[in-house]
Nucleic acid binder design. Structure first.
Length: 821
RNA sequence: GCCCAGAUGGCGGAAUUGGUAUACGCGCCAGUCUUAGGAACUGGUUCUCGCAAGGGAUUGGAGGUUCGAGUCCUCUUCUGGGCACCA
């Protein structure tokens, strides 16, 4: 036994021990214990290694996993690597080093770092999304989607990053800038692959094979109701899906068979609809525009096409438009209204057409600019405001009471929306309509370092899926990484030497690869059966381990990864591969750890805390506990280098206590009481992941034990068991120091004794008019009568009561008595 | 503009159903030991008036409900995150 606490010495020793006995933490299929699947978001193995944020979430799941194992659960706690993606490829472009090598190197570093922190992963199940044995199944899933009509190709205007030379999903083109390199995103018309995620927004009902009834799969929206996720994350997903309830209205075009269909959530303003607006890309624009206006419209279209997405979306930008020279009929008023085009109308939302009126600030502004007539039909409550609205001085966008709306005058906006839609519905000119912002997921990328899309193009047979037996379609190594705007795979001779699986003629392969989000949409399933060569995972093992009971990772994945993973699960449920339709039952995010000055950690600012340094100076146990002690897991919190010393002092106290252990030790009911209260508090706090208060409770107990001349071995053992999940190294060391020959993590989690946590005496608060005037030590089950007596006889209280009449006395058993005067 | 989260000492943060606000830790102050300490230990530490006993104030702000509010209700300010010309 060492004299001084020395993490640098004991930690490697126990890490070695855990490596030697992997069965301590590996999930055992044959076990008949109840399972728990505790999952971390698998990291992208970046060259910069692990950062303190990784440590935060991995510690959180590690504590939980160790606790659950001690509680008697069979815990699946795996880890892997999200290894495809742009950084390694960009590095290859710069240096010529193959991404495979870069990633291999980075994974080595990651694993070493993870090991040095004492995380109890089941490494026998490690996955790496860039290995053929993994992406074979990514490709297989692509084909499964394809065969079920859920993967399709279409020419689409797509976000294009000129620097990365690739297509970006809408989600990756944030504010018109490339998520990765921040270059401005431009638009390109290209043939692209999509996944039909929009089919899964609402619940679906499909016939199970062989007439086994109907499978119901919850949708991306309603499925959120049954999972334990942060409200903020659910909100983000709902927001992203963007469901709205409205109406579709048909506007007949003058001298034409065509009609313009408009989507609106404000059909209550229809009677003030004095003109129509089409998106510049609307298919009818070229068809209907009259000859004399063609020049003007074309000029406008060219101008619009030149604009990038950001320019178009810039807020507060002056509205512009052009007149087609054509008129339509407002179905409510029968009035003849002009059809304009404007670039603030989005072609891919609703129907790409809106009716414009005085109750929308954009329409209002445009009409003022081009002298298009306006009309009002909604009256606000405020008379003064109404004067201004009526005179078209201001634009009133809120709800109100209908005016100038024929038989609907006097109705509220809400009532009118129903009545007007119903009225027009009988005439076939309108219908209720639900609309979503979510669009299908663009999954193809013109890049090398991803899973190749397993499709072959044949002159004769067209699009042919690669036969399952030929999977995986492996990435070739004879490629030049330089981006050309097309996938590097296009120029690989090896890769393109292919014949059509149907007719045997010379054919070419699809050269695009898949978005890395595809790979990460199903990896959690693979952990159930990571070495399976015949299936992505066997049904039996999926049923054994899935769904994930606890998922922890960054909030930055609240929309993309989590939505896509849910979509995959729903597809696989629909097709009968999975029993469940939500993959992650409970989700928590770790909050960002900020630099000491409260700003974001960043390489350029040089304020990044490297976990390796902290481990070298203070030890892994100290880093783990410190990060957990800093505050609630999900909160954003600043790093405080000074604070770590508190944890070290805490460990030293426990360490030095060894010399005070005796078989008997100081035993008194007070210590027992605190011991068992701590067992209760720590257990509950781990379950709710309030690790900061669990550690604080452990400190309270160690402070109390330390004050005793002797510490009983029984108490010390209990203490180490409670500390184990948080600080596994020191706990193992001290546990073995007691003569134990087996790991502390084979022990059972302590149970508290209900009798021992009952207090015999309590502090009774005596209040006068709600103000604390004294606190007295009394028997815990003191009666109201006795409490009154104690209060009334108290000198301090008497002083406050002097000369007053007591109106009322409130007594809360075991807590307080309040005298009201 | 919309959605979500939050605001408590010098700092990070505690506080079952409304019931002792400031637990625990850092820092700071004093003391012990020491050649020394940015080490260790002991004690103190919300603010304020007071030598003290004791009093008063206090959970972003303003109201309200209640015997009693950090906690519940209404309004409001600010901060962080997300979405956004979405009809």
């Amino acid at each position: 036994m060492e004299n001084k606490y020395n993490p640098g010495k004991i930690e490697p020793k126990w890490q070695e021990y855990w490596r030697k006995y992997p069965e301590l933490f590996n999930a055992d299929y044959s076990s008949n214990k109840e399972k728990r699947f505790i999952l971390d978001m698998f990291p992208y193995p970046s060259g910069t290694g692990l950062h303190v944020g990784h440590v935060e979430s991995y510690t959180a799941t590690d504590i939980y996993s160790r606790y659950l194992r001690m509680k008697g659960f069979e815990v699946l706690h795996p880890q892997g690597f999200d290894a495809f993606g742009l950084p390694a490829e960009n590095y290859a472009i710069k240096t010529g080093v193959h991404p495979k090598e870069t990633i291999e190197e980075a994974i080595k570093v990651f694993k070493k770092q993870i090991d040095s922190l004492g995380f109890s992963y089941d490494w026998s199940r490690e996955v790496n999304s860039s290995l053929p044995e993994y992406y074979k199944w990514t490709q297989w899933l692509f084909l499964l989607f394809y065969k079920n009509g859920l993967a399709y190709k279409k020419k689409a205007k797509v976000n294009w990053c000129p620097k990365c030379q690739t297509v970006l999903a809408n989600e990756q083109a944030e504010n018109g800038k490339c998520e990765r390199c921040e270059s401005e995103v431009t638009q390109k018309n290209l043939e692209q692959w999509f996944f039909k995620i929009t089919d899964f927004i609402e619940p679906s009902f499909v016939k199970a094979s062989a007439g086994q009834g109907i499978i119901k799969t919850s949708g991306l929206l309603d499925g959120l109701d049954k999972v334990d996720w942060p409200d903020s994350t659910k909100g983000l997903q709902r927001n992203w899906i963007g469901k709205s309830f409205g109406s579709e209205v048909d506007f007949a075009i003058e001298n034409s068979q065509e009609k313009i269909i408009v989507y609106t959530t404000r059909i209550d303003t229809l009677f003030s609809g004095t003109y129509l607006l089409l998106a510049p890309e609307h298919p009818l624009v070229n068809i209907i525009t009259i000859e004399s206006q063609k020049k003007e419209i074309n000029a406008y279209l060219i101008e619009t096409a030149k604009k990038t997405e950001i320019e178009r979306q810039e807020l507060q930008k002056e509205k512009t438009g052009a007149f087609t020279g054509v008129y339509a009929t407002n179905p409510a008023t029968g009035e003849r209204i002009p059809i304009w085009i404007s670039d603030f109308v989005l072609v891919n939302y609703g129907t790409g057409a809106v009716f414009a009126d005085a109750h929308d600030s954009r329409d209002f502004e445009l009409a003022k600019k081009y002298d298009i007539p306006l009309q009002v039909s909604i009256r606000p409550k405020d008379d003064e405001l109404w004067e201004k609205v009526k005179n078209l001085e201001v634009c009133f966008e809120e709800e109100g009471v209908l005016v100038n709306s024929a038989q609907f005058n006097g109705l509220s906006s809400g009532e009118a929306r129903i009545k007007i839609t119903e009225w027009l519905e009988t005439r076939g000119a309108a219908r209720f309509k639900v609309n979503y912002k979510l669009r299908d997921w663009l999954v193809s990328r013109q890049r090398y370092w991803g899973a190749p899309i397993p499709i072959i193009y044949c002159e004769k047979c067209g699009e042919v899926p690669v036969p399952e037996a030929d999977l995986p379609v492996e990435l070739p190594d004879d490629v030049d990484f330089k981006p050309t705007g097309e996938s590097p795979l296009k120029y690989s001779k090896k890769f393109q030497a292919v014949i059509c699986p149907k007719c045997g003629a010379k054919a070419r392969r699809e050269s695009d690869t898949m978005d890395t989000f595809v790979c990460s949409s199903w990896y959690y399933l693979r952990y159930a059966d990571p070495k399976n060569e015949k299936e992505f995972a066997s049904k039996e093992l999926l049923e054994k381990w899935l769904p994930v009971d606890l998922y922890v990772g960054g909030a930055e994945h609240s929309v993309l990864h989590l939505l896509y993973a849910r979509f995959f699960t729903k597809v696989l449920h629909n097709l009968g591969y999975l029993e469940f339709d939500e993959p992650f039952l409970k989700l928590r995010h770790q909050g960002t750890i900020l630099a000491e000055d409260g700003t974001k950690m960043s390489k350029s600012k040089g304020n990044v805390v490297n976990p390796d340094d902290v481990v070298a100076h203070h030890g892994a146990d100290a880093l783990r506990c410190f990060e957990m002690f800093m505050g609630p897991l999900e909160d954003m919190k600043p790093w405080q280098t000074r604070g770590i010393i508190g944890i070290t002092r805490f460990f030293e106290k426990i360490w030095n206590m060894q010399t005070k252990i005796s078989k008997k030790g100081s035993t008194n009911s007070k210590l027992d009481n605190l011991m068992h209260k701590t067992i209760k508090k720590v257990s509950e706090d781990i379950e709710s992941m309030h690790y900061n208060t669990a550690i604080s409770q452990l400190m309270i107990l160690s402070n109390a034990l330390e004050k005793e001349p002797e510490v009983s071995e029984a108490h010390y053992k209990l203490y180490l068991l409670l500390l184990g999940p948080f600080a596994p190294h020191i706990s193992e060391e001290l546990w073995s120091g007691l003569g134990n020959t087996e790991s502390i993590f084979k022990e059972k989690w302590p149970e508290y004794d209900l009798n021992l946590i009952q207090d015999e005496e309590v502090d009774l608060v005596i209040q006068v008019n709600g103000k604390v005037r004294d606190i007295v030590r009394v028997n815990a089950d003191i009666s109201e009568e006795n409490a009154k007596k104690v209060a009334m006889e108290n000198e301090k209280i008497k002083k406050h009561l002097e000369g007053n009449v007591i109106k009322k006395i409130i007594f809360i058993k075991g807590r307080l008595i309040n005298i009201v005067i």
